[in-house]
Amino acid sequence: MTITFSDWITEIANWVFLAIALPTLGAAILVVSAKNIVRAVLALVVTLAGTAALFMMLGAEFVGWTVVLVYIGAVIILFLIGIMITRAPLTKNADLSQPMSMRAPAALLSIILFAVIGWAVVASFGAAAIPLPDEATTTASIGETMFTNWVIPFEVMSFVLLAALVGGIALARQDAPEEEEA
């Protein structure tokens, strides 16, 4: 099922979408270009919040809340801790990015990548409509399929987290002075 531009423009959901997507994009650009490191990280929060909002809009409530919880609740804190510990300069005009000679080709690369993906997507999906879900995806249904089909990755996921935790601690921890060595 495809929809025309006039259909699109008249659908209220699309305006909601734009209202979410544009700030998200703007924040994303800020993440990669802000001259203040904390601002960049906070822009990331906005971006992620934007995606979470989109998820909810699409009825993926569980995922949306997970994003909020995990990212905004935990990951961002990690980032901030990282910034603090590494004593990144918090001033506004800090030297956070590579010079233009690196940025220009990188931008070019990114644009081409976007073009390639975008072209492919447009070519494949055209104006196919996304059916708005009648009801939000229930947590129960997600849990059910996850534990029928994806038990193994779920279990493995726990090992990933455990490994990241244990390994991260071991790596990041200040080594005890010499006397610990017995």
């Binding site: 089909n149 994806w150 193994i152 990755p153 493995v156 996921m157 090992f159 990933v160 490994a163 990241a164 390994g167 991260g168 071991a170 790596l171």
Partner: peptide, 21 residues
């Protein structure tokens, strides 16, 4: 043993993560 992308990706990450560390 993974025969879908989800399992494969999680498995892959369990190989990579410790590798990084």
């Amino acid at each position: 043993s993974s025969r879908d992308f989800i399992t494969m990706i999680v498995g892959l990450e369990l190989v990579s993560g410790p590798g990084f560390l």
